[in-house]
Write a protein that binds this DNA or RNA. Structure first.
Length: 526
RNA sequence: GGCCCCAUCGUCUAGUUAGGUCUAGGACAUCGGAUUUUCAUUCCGGUAACAGGGGUUCAAAUCCCCUUGGGGUCACCA
């Protein structure tokens, strides 16, 4: 048997991080078994704009490197892969159910059904369908139809049956059919409902394993009944836990983003994200892009490897040790058997840690390729292809070392790209290190003279020079180094000071010292 | 409320199927310390969990029951 799994997104305009985890598990199970992974678009409820709303979803798959064997763009033997284009299949299946007497036309007014439901609830009684339309004779039914009386089609639930599944994650789960209302399978306009279309398609596409989030568990008995009624072989089920928001068991949701902003576990990620996004021209406060969406991580400069690793470890583990997995290792080692049952909260800190790990493994050339677009978007460089620019960026990346966890972290080193007059000063520390200490400005002036004449403006001689200078002046290096750093980078801390000086170059360093001295003097005067 | 699911450090998890090797392991976070005259990294170390109650058993985190708690879902949405 060839394993075939599917992921069936609705075109919503964005890819949910939790949905992505579900998709990843589907994909991994298919690949692990050398089977096929199918993308099917559940757009029965959509009108236009399917293309626009689908784009970000396909982009997310492409970005993470999850390919699909059948589906949009690639087609396949069971095309089309949009439910909106498969109507004839549903119509035929509907007719089949009706002909076999396994479904019936329900002429009951929706309000009546609703009030029965409410009455049952009030009386603490289980609600099941009245089936009033079931007693109608063929003639009566035909008459009502001829009159144009609206009806829905309901599956006739075999009330004495039980549905038992052997779920790959949850084990045996069972439902008593006597407690189930007859589910609607077709609306009054004849269009199929989710549960029905899904079953028809899962069978038609020969899906062997339905792997989906556990929120679908209550749909399962209905779908099993539908499979049976249509004479299909039921697929195997695996209901995986949904992705919860950090530190909770609540399903992660796009609408709760304001709440997440105040969640301490989300703090570092938001800080990082806000900082990067504001530089690349995206409003960090807007909910058009948030950590609930896969695109967020891409825009902030995460690696697919980092996101993938974080996702796979959410609800799945190999053993008591392994944390890091490449995609191909995941394919090799993933099994449904080792998926956990309980909901797993997204852990942004751990995600950042996975990310940092894979970034540190990334070859320099790829780091460069990743950082360039960020600098370009922020207007910090002009031409990504210019050899000199690339060389400079490469040097900065090398200097930054593991300070770059996401590509957007390159902005931490923006002093290497901004013009001198636009260098932002960390005012608080500038006050403390340069403006307030009496001797600081004089010291900087003397230092400037030395820097002006030093023959070899590279890290090691510069280090020796500074060291000697401090000794000579009888001051602590702690009084000189930080002040100099503030003057030339605007920051209180950062990458190696001497390599920074070398990379900045003599002219730049001298100019920035002058500017800082001027700034300090005017602040002292003021 | 009905139905269903879940329950180990703050978080992600190992251990539960085949009870003993678990004085409960790892990772992230956190706190200390070392290295780096900054920051980051790296390295060492610390704090920290079997929801509660009953059984079964020589022995229970592991099996059974109850309680509590958390969650999902209850549409002519998907």
């Amino acid at each position: 048997m060839t394993v075939r799994t599917r992921f069936a997104p609705s075109p919503t305009g964005y890819m949910h991080i939790g949905g992505m985890r579900t998709a990843l598990f589907c994909w991994l199970w298919a690949r692990h078994n050398r089977g096929q992974f199918i993308l099917r678009i559940d757009d029965t409820d959509q009108q236009r704009n399917v293309d626009a709303a689908l784009g970000p979803i396909l982009d997310a798959f492409r970005w993470l490197g999850l390919d699909w064997d059948e589906g949009p763009e690639v087609g396949g033997p069971h095309a089309p892969y949009f439910q909106s284009q498969r109507r004839s299949l549903y119509d035929a299946a509907l007719q089949q159910l009706l002909d076999a007497g396994k479904a019936y036309r329900d002429f009951e007014a929706p309000e009546d059904t609703q009030s029965q439901r409410e009455a049952a609830e009030k009386e603490k009684r289980v609600y099941v369908s009245s089936r009033a339309s079931l007693v109608l004779s063929q003639e009566e039914t035909a008459k009502l139809m001829a009159e144009g009386r609206p009806f829905v089609v309901r599956l006739l639930v075999p009330r004495t049956d039980k549905v038992v599944i052997d779920d790959h994650v949850r084990g045996q789960v069972e439902w008593d059919c006597s407690l189930m209302p007859d589910p609607v399978v077709a609306r009054s306009d004849g269009s199929p409902l989710y549960n029905f279309a899904t079953v028809v398609d899962d069978a038609a596409l020969e899906i062997t394993h339905v792997i989906r989030a556990e929120e679908h568990l209550p749909n399962t008995p209905i779908q099993v009944l539908l499979h049976r009624a249509l004479g299909y072989k039921t697929p195997e089920w695996a209901h995986i836990p949904y992705v919860a928001s950090p530190g909770s068991k609540e399903k992660m949701s796009k609408r709760k983003i304001d709440k997440y902003r105040t969640n301490p576990q989300f703090q570092k990620l938001f800080e990082l994200g806000d900082q990067v996004l504001s530089r690349v021209g995206i409003d960090p406060g807007s909910d058009a892009l948030s950590p609930v969406m896969v695109a967020y991580y891409q825009q902030v400069g995460f690696l697919p490897a980092g996101v993938l690793n974080a996702l796979v470890r959410l609800g799945w583990s190999l053993d008591d040790q392994a944390e890091f997995f490449t995609l191909s290792e995941m394919v090799q080692k993933f099994t449904l058997e080792r998926v956990i049952k309980s909901a797993a909260g997204l852990d942004p800190d751990k995600m950042l840690n996975f990310q940092a790990h894979w970034m540190s493994e990334l070859p320099a050339e790829e780091k460069l390729a990743g950082c360039l677009p960020f600098l370009k978007k922020a207007g910090l460089i002009d031409d990504e292809n210019d050899a000199a620019t690339r060389a400079r960026v490469a040097s900065v990346i090398d200097l930054a070392a593991d300070r770059i966890r996401v590509f957007g972290d390159i902005f931490q080193l923006d002093e290497f790209f901004v013009a001198d007059e636009r260098l932002k000063m960390d005012d608080k520390n500038f006050q403390k290190r340069v403006v307030k200490p009496e001797a600081a400005v004089d010291l900087l002036r003397d230092l400037r003279k030395r820097l002006e004449v030093v023959t070899d403006f590279t890290a090691t001689p510069l280090h020796d020079l500074l060291q000697g200078f401090a000794g000579e002046k009888q001051v602590k290096v702690g009084d000189v180094f930080p002040a100099l750093r503030l003057c030339v980078t605007g920051k209180a801390q950062g990458a190696d000071l001497f390599r920074s000086l070398e990379l900045l170059g003599r002219d730049c360093v001298l100019g920035r010292i002058d500017r800082a001295i001027g700034l300090a003097e005017s602040q002292r005067a003021g």
